Amino acid sequence: MDTATINGIELEYEIRGAGEPVLLISPVLADSFVPLVAEPALNRDHRLIRYHKRGWSGSTHTPGPVPVTTHAADALALLDHLGIDRVHVAGHSSGAAVAAQLAQDHPDRIATVALLELALLSVPAGEAFFAQAAPAFEAYAGGEPEHALALFLSLVGGMDWERCRTLLEERMPGSVEQAVKDADTFFGVELPGLAEWPFGPDDAAAIRQPVLSVLGSRTLPLWVEVAAFLRATVPDVEECVIDGVGHLLHIEQPRPVAEALARFLAAHPVTP
């Protein structure tokens, strides 16, 4: 990957394809968009930019918690470094939080927003999710980062760890090992920053760009509730449900996700 020096840190990034720019923002798995960018439906007509947020993989690690607003500022600085004035942005889970923050902070720079199961922990179902995830947090606190990630990814993915690990290694070789290396970032930096993110109805209503909300049909109640929240609060929102998948939707079924994104982006070009 290439490296950009911005905001006093270094971010790793990679660009694939040509056409209208799309910034892709990942959560716990630094390379989770790899299967998606390989899909011709998306890379044929778009310049896909994926990067490692601060703290992930080879990007600079800084003490936590790192607020969502800081990640959004980093993303904007990366766009500046690349000379990109206006862009589509897509994020998954906590990466979707960064995408939503970018849309609020810089409406002149963001053409559209695609939210793949936005991680919004303040909705009522967030408390139940934290209770379900408690064993993962306990394992991490007990010095077992690999076990903690196995528990967490199995929970959000809706599958046992053997199947989940096999899926991740098939689609993104080396991703599990890297996720274990990034465990301190996820549990000690990313989640605390996300938990403090104040995204309410007024914030959602402030997003005036076209928004695509993408949901897996087998996902957890948390993301069903978040989708309902977006439906009720975002002024211009479209919805897409990917059949037969959970929270790891763009890893399990990258083709239908890529096709849905491509249709959405074609309908809302950067330059009308």
Rank of each mutant, 00 (worst) to 15 (best):
D2A: 15
D2K: 09
A18D: 13
S26C: 12
P27C: 04
F33D: 07
F33A: 11
V34D: 12
A38W: 10
L42E: 03
N43T: 10
H46M: 11
H46L: 14
L48G: 07
R50F: 03
S57L: 03
P65T: 09
T69Q: 08
T70Q: 15
A75C: 08
A77V: 06
D80G: 07
G83Y: 12
I84V: 09
R86L: 01
V87S: 12
A90H: 11
S94L: 04
L102E: 01
L102F: 09
H106S: 15
P107L: 07
D108R: 15
R109S: 06
T112G: 13
L120K: 06
L120Y: 09
G126W: 07
F130G: 11
P135F: 10
F137C: 01
G142R: 05
P145W: 01
A148L: 03
S154K: 06
S154D: 02
V156F: 08
E162K: 15
E162W: 08
R163M: 10
R165W: 09
S175H: 02
A179P: 06
D182L: 00
D184R: 12
P192L: 03
P192W: 02
L194T: 00
F199N: 05
D203T: 05
A206Y: 04
R208H: 14
Q209D: 06
L212I: 11
S213Q: 14
G216R: 11
R218H: 15
R218E: 14
P221N: 04
F229P: 13
F229N: 13
V237L: 08
E238I: 02
I251P: 04
P254T: 04
V257F: 09
